[in-house]
Design a protein around this nucleic acid. Sequence first.
DNA 1: AAATGCAGGATTGTCGACAATCAGACTAAA
DNA 2: TTTAGTCTGATTGTCGACAATCCTGCATTT
Lengths: 228, 228
Amino acid sequence: MSLPLLKPVVTAADRVLQELLRAIVAGEIAPGTKISEPELAKRFDLSRAPLREALARLERCHLLERTPNAGSRVVKLSTENLLSLYQLREELEGLACRLAATQMSDTEIREMQDLLDQHLASQRVREGESYYQEAGDLDFHYRIILGSKNPYLINILTDELYHLMRMYRVQLGMNGPRVSRAFDEHKAIINAIANRDGELADLLMRRHIAASRRNIEHKLTELEQKGN
Amino acid sequence: MSLPLLKPVVTAADRVLQELLRAIVAGEIAPGTKISEPELAKRFDLSRAPLREALARLERCHLLERTPNAGSRVVKLSTENLLSLYQLREELEGLACRLAATQMSDTEIREMQDLLDQHLASQRVREGESYYQEAGDLDFHYRIILGSKNPYLINILTDELYHLMRMYRVQLGMNGPRVSRAFDEHKAIINAIANRDGELADLLMRRHIAASRRNIEHKLTELEQKGN
DNA sequence: AAATGCAGGATTGTCGACAATCAGACTAAA
DNA sequence: TTTAGTCTGATTGTCGACAATCCTGCATTT
């Protein structure tokens, strides 16, 4: 289950980016935390040059907010931002479906179907295990996005919005009946694409994402009311 | 007719970014040109640090393509990329319309209508003058995008795709009957928004962008066949 | 002749230090 | 008490030099 989600890691900037990304997405660096360049540089035993490079990329992913001459802060999760993010996702991944229905090759589609069967089998074993589910879900969306063959769309979804989506998911989780439903929805979407029915795939994807949003939104409002 | 299209310019990186942006969009630096960091640094009398910052932002705008350890090249205009870009625009600006129809305040809408009347009046005077038309068109789209009130959508359209759109427009122009039609289409779109009819505004915007694409696509294929 | 290995050059990546700028606290005056 | 001004500390922005990496062309070998 390999997710080719990150660019190759070769430079020091790549390494610190990967580590910061993981820590922020996982919530180890609490949302709202001030980022100090000199401090982080010392912690990672680097100079500020590659660190700044990494911070710039994190800002691009909307995981960091830089206020000029006042430092960077880790973004906070909020219902408003969640809604804005998912509005975009519905639209963009819907488009991706429509394009994928005409652009994906038969073998690519076949591979996705096999992958889904595989996930379903392994999910039956691990009832409620959320990590694999999540990886499977991400992999599914990832492949459809790539299947659109639209470089700008791919860039926006995989490089800029992807990690923010992960942040919501990792910190708020996905649980309960939603997990098994997602599989069925995936299946329906890939079937529509296999039938080259872009309109249907689009519609199903929008519903799928809307359902996922409601699930996360519910958890988030719960959390916000508890005082945070 | 002020277009608040660029972030405030204060640092050296901002200045060189602005200049490079202008030069690339205008085609003064030919598409496909190799970018040499040391050479540019010398030309702008800067060190490489702020220059790299500027190049990173240009890459983010898809105006530069960096291949690791092999330098950056200015992007080439192509029919494929144009189509990919406009596919996205249709979708995203359509969404922007739908959101703007519910999110824009009455005064914002009123201001846009006034602006359009103003453009129309001044356009009658300057028949076929394409620069003002373009600025007006950009301003129109810009305001609707902001009217969506979705920060991620705004960021993608104004920071990442905007300058690339401009590049196509500036280098391939917009001319003939298309110019005056665009005004009518703008008028129809803002009216739909004023009526709070998001669906209609969405549809009209998609058509408007599709028509604009056909116009540019035609010019581009003409140009490509002429040998370039 | 084709393929392989080896310099040479160029490019990017990285470093540590300095300069400019800004936020916030403190002092002093009204 | 409030306000204005200044000062300090911290942060970002910038610099020039060095190190690591990668492409190119050429010589060498098979």
